[in-house]
Amino acid sequence: MRDATLVTTLGRDPEQNDGIVNPPIQRASTILFPTVDSLLAARPGPGVVNYGRYGTPTTFALEEAVATLEGAGGAVVVGSGKGAIVATMLALLQAGDHVLVADNVYHPTRQTTDGLMKRMGVASDYFDPLVPEQVRQKIRKETRVVYLESPGSLTFEITDVAAIAEIAHAHGALVVFDNTWATPLYFKPYEHGVDVTIHAATKYIGGHSDLMMGIVTSTAALHGRLRQGIQDLGMSVSPEDCWLALRAIRTLDVRLRRHMESGIEVAQWLQGRPEVARVLHPALPSDPGHALWKRDFKGASGLFGIVLNPASPAAVAAMLDDMELFGMGWSWGGYESLLIPTFPQKSRSATAWRPEGPCLRIHVGLEDPDDLTADLDAGFARLRAAS
């Protein structure tokens, strides 16, 4: 079945729930067993109701749905996207290991590798995500993980994931990929050599700006290791949140399609603005990563970047402070549009980022794109007036 059908059918079984379309919310801490043998035989694992912290059928329904959409061997839910990053690294790395990280990853990923993992005795290096050969040059015999994100956080470069995966696997390293931007619908990581994926399900999978969640998927061979590592950290997610994520998945296909179409329309409009030096959107034919995006991705989301022509911080603030439809907030992926200033140059160590002027990150929500461009037009008027 195709993705549009899968998102409406996965993770639910009306025949097992008195014909009710949606699965119930099943809360639990203690699980009772009828015999000593059944008590001792119930080991925590996928679909096994053993103790509330390990999950209930509501949890397992969400994990099954996401794993199937992703093409993975299994999935585990955790409390946030950052939690998914930390749990994955702790499950796969130990003292004396080395991790190679793309230089354009989400900044909290860098905080994890440079902070927590360093304290745990794990070394790290960064590489140019546009030069796969750098992975070959920087990989060590103790490298266990190569960590990727495509498009890159804030700057939206497209990485040749398959080429990097081939190099990593030739040296015995696993490939971890953050698939939050594209979701399981628009990028199929296991078709490109990825071993583990991370999702901030707070974003598009949750979709309504009211949910904190992370999801880790993996090949079948790695699933037990990751699930055990997450259980060792005592991570769990409420069944209410899992139910909300399942409910949101039902509309993921139609929501993401609208985010993509409106995002491209707004991005094309921005390309014609004199205040804009560059639009960082891989679905635009003018983008340097467009050919790779077109080869590997099935679509685009509503998140992209803008580089303005030179403008003062006061002028940028004048533009952003009085936006009517674009809010300012640190998340994205919900139904509402967002616009914030960004500073990619502060999060680079292996590459240089030299923008023409201030950088903005834009998330195009589900509003009418004509209303959004009108809001941006008024913002640009304030920018010019304050310059």
Score class of each variant (00 low, 15 high):
residue 303 L to H: 06
residue 315 A to C: 05
residue 63 E to S: 06
residue 316 V to D: 09
residue 26 Q to N: 13
residue 271 Q to V: 03
residue 193 G to M: 01
residue 117 M to G: 03
residue 259 H to T: 03
residue 293 W to R: 01
residue 59 T to A: 07
residue 51 Y to G: 05
residue 91 A to I: 06
residue 194 V to P: 01
residue 377 D to I: 08
residue 215 I to A: 09
residue 348 R to P: 04
residue 86 V to W: 11
residue 262 S to M: 06
residue 10 L to M: 05
residue 47 G to Y: 08
residue 67 A to P: 00
residue 129 P to G: 01
residue 56 T to I: 09
residue 316 V to C: 08
residue 68 T to R: 06
residue 43 R to D: 12
residue 358 P to I: 00
residue 386 A to P: 11
residue 33 F to P: 05
residue 246 L to K: 04
residue 376 L to P: 05
residue 116 L to S: 04
residue 10 L to S: 02
residue 15 E to Y: 15
residue 75 A to I: 05
residue 253 D to G: 02
residue 242 C to R: 01
residue 318 A to F: 07
residue 21 V to C: 10
residue 32 L to V: 15
residue 104 N to Y: 06
residue 170 A to M: 12
residue 206 G to S: 13
residue 157 E to F: 04
residue 252 L to A: 01
residue 154 L to E: 07
residue 315 A to K: 01
residue 118 K to E: 14
residue 287 D to W: 07
residue 286 S to G: 10
residue 242 C to V: 06
residue 265 E to P: 03
residue 126 Y to W: 15
residue 217 T to P: 00
residue 48 V to P: 03
residue 24 P to R: 00
residue 381 A to W: 06
residue 99 V to L: 12
residue 118 K to N: 09
residue 254 V to A: 14
residue 20 I to F: 15
residue 166 E to F: 00
residue 270 L to Q: 07
residue 32 L to W: 12
residue 77 V to R: 10
residue 45 G to N: 10
residue 131 V to Q: 11
residue 257 R to Y: 07
